[in-house]
Computed example of a mutant assay.
Amino acid sequence: MSANGTRVIEWAHGEDTFCLAKVGLILDLEDKCKAGIAVIMARIEAGAWGLSDIRETIRLGLIGGGMSPAKAAEAVKNHVDQNPLAHSVLVAYSVLQAVMIGVPDDPVGKEMPAEAQKPGSSTMTGASDALN
């Protein structure tokens, strides 16, 4: 699993950094969706998701990636709520994958460059990797 669950994804809003790998964000997601994170991921995998599963995963992922809560809410309103949901489902699933499974080029078990070991560093992938 990625050391910090961070993923860069190209989506309707543009290219943004998402990260849910923070306990407080996961607890907020579980509270908003009334389910554990693994259940939320399983619902998305099964196509049995609710709108909160998608909206809150994206919103909280944006916040964890460094976007302000107000801008994250605005991005969700403009790009999730007002567009077909199919792409947003893929984005939400990709955000959950990063925290639950990891990301390509996972540094776990590999010697990390000194720069990547600094607090606040992140592992990022391109959008094409994020949606595969």
Rank of each mutant, 00 (worst) to 15 (best):
W49K: 09
V91R: 05
V103E: 11
M1Y: 03
V80S: 09
I101Q: 13
I58K: 06
A42P: 00
G14Q: 03
E30H: 10
S122F: 05
L51G: 03
G64Y: 07
D81C: 14
A46R: 06
E30Y: 08
V99M: 04
S68G: 11
H87R: 04
K32A: 09
A98L: 08
D28C: 15
E10V: 03
A130H: 05
K71F: 13
K34P: 08
E115K: 12
D105E: 14
I101E: 12
C33G: 09
P113E: 00
V95W: 03
A35R: 15
V8A: 15
R55E: 00
E15A: 03
L29C: 04
V91Q: 04
P113G: 01
P107E: 07
V23T: 11
W11L: 07
G36N: 12
S121V: 05
S94Q: 06
C33S: 12
V95C: 10
A92P: 08
S128L: 06
G109S: 08
V80I: 06
I63C: 13
A38E: 10
D106C: 01
I44Y: 01
E30N: 12
Q82H: 12
A42Q: 04
H79S: 11
G36Y: 09
S68Y: 11
S122Q: 02
I58A: 06
A21E: 00
P104F: 06
I58C: 05
Q97C: 14
V103D: 13
M100R: 09
A35I: 15
G102A: 04
P119T: 13
W49Q: 13
K22F: 09
Y93I: 04
T125K: 03
A70C: 14
T125R: 00
A48L: 14
D129K: 13
A75T: 13
G50T: 09
P107M: 01
S68N: 12
G61E: 00
P113M: 00
V103T: 14
A70F: 09
D129W: 04
L29N: 02
A86P: 13
G126M: 11
E115D: 05
T123F: 05
G66S: 14
C19T: 02
G47K: 08
I101A: 12
E15W: 13
Y93Q: 11
K77W: 13
A35D: 13
G126I: 01
N4Q: 11
S52F: 01
G126D: 08
N132P: 06
P104S: 07
D28E: 15
A127L: 07
T6H: 01
